[in-house]
Simulated assay, not measured.
Amino acid sequence: MWPTAGVYENPKPNSVVVKTKHAGDIVGASTCEGAGYNEYGYVLVTTDAAADGRGWMREEAVVQS
């Protein structure tokens, strides 16, 4: 489990981090949408911190509960 993980504006490693989540934090997702960039996989999460309300997190940092 990752101690912290960034919520990115776009699903790319060089994208702006709009929020940082900590281990155990709950993130919301309205769909099961995903995206890939090179070897990285991202999942869509909802966040007020992103311009469009949609943020992206590395899939390895998210655990389904």
Results as ranks from 00 to 15, higher is better:
65 S>W: 13
61 A>L: 01
15 S>R: 00
48 D>E: 14
1 M>Y: 15
49 A>N: 12
13 P>Q: 04
62 V>N: 02
45 V>C: 05
28 G>Y: 15
22 H>Q: 08
64 Q>C: 05
49 A>D: 15
24 G>T: 10
19 K>Y: 09
13 P>M: 02
8 Y>A: 04
65 S>I: 09
65 S>A: 14
24 G>W: 09
8 Y>I: 00
21 K>R: 15
4 T>W: 14
23 A>L: 13
17 V>G: 05
1 M>L: 00
37 Y>E: 03
36 G>H: 09
18 V>R: 01
55 G>F: 06
48 D>N: 12
53 G>A: 08
31 T>E: 14
54 R>P: 00
35 A>S: 10
44 L>P: 02
30 S>R: 15
36 G>R: 12
52 D>W: 05
2 W>C: 00
65 S>K: 14
33 E>D: 10
31 T>F: 03
15 S>T: 05
17 V>R: 13
31 T>W: 07
56 W>H: 01
19 K>S: 08
2 W>S: 05
35 A>Y: 11
7 V>Q: 09
22 H>D: 06
43 V>F: 06
1 M>G: 11
7 V>S: 09
20 T>E: 12
60 E>I: 10
57 M>K: 06
28 G>K: 15
17 V>F: 04
26 I>H: 05
52 D>H: 08
8 Y>T: 00
32 C>R: 15
34 G>T: 13
3 P>S: 06
6 G>A: 04
3 P>Y: 11
10 N>L: 06
57 M>A: 04
30 S>L: 09
52 D>A: 12
26 I>A: 11
30 S>G: 09
27 V>D: 03
56 W>D: 03
8 Y>P: 00
23 A>F: 10
29 A>F: 08
20 T>H: 12
18 V>C: 06
42 Y>G: 00
30 S>A: 03
1 M>N: 10
23 A>N: 12
28 G>L: 15
20 T>L: 07
31 T>S: 09
31 T>C: 01
1 M>P: 06
65 S>D: 12
16 V>T: 14
49 A>Q: 14
19 K>M: 12
19 K>G: 03
34 G>N: 14
3 P>M: 07
20 T>C: 01
51 A>F: 04
34 G>C: 09
12 K>H: 07
18 V>H: 00
17 V>D: 03
18 V>I: 10
29 A>K: 15
29 A>T: 05
64 Q>H: 11
62 V>M: 08
17 V>E: 07
52 D>R: 14
51 A>G: 04
38 N>E: 11
53 G>T: 02
4 T>A: 02
54 R>F: 06
35 A>F: 13
7 V>I: 13
29 A>I: 00
34 G>E: 13
28 G>H: 15
38 N>Q: 11
46 T>V: 03
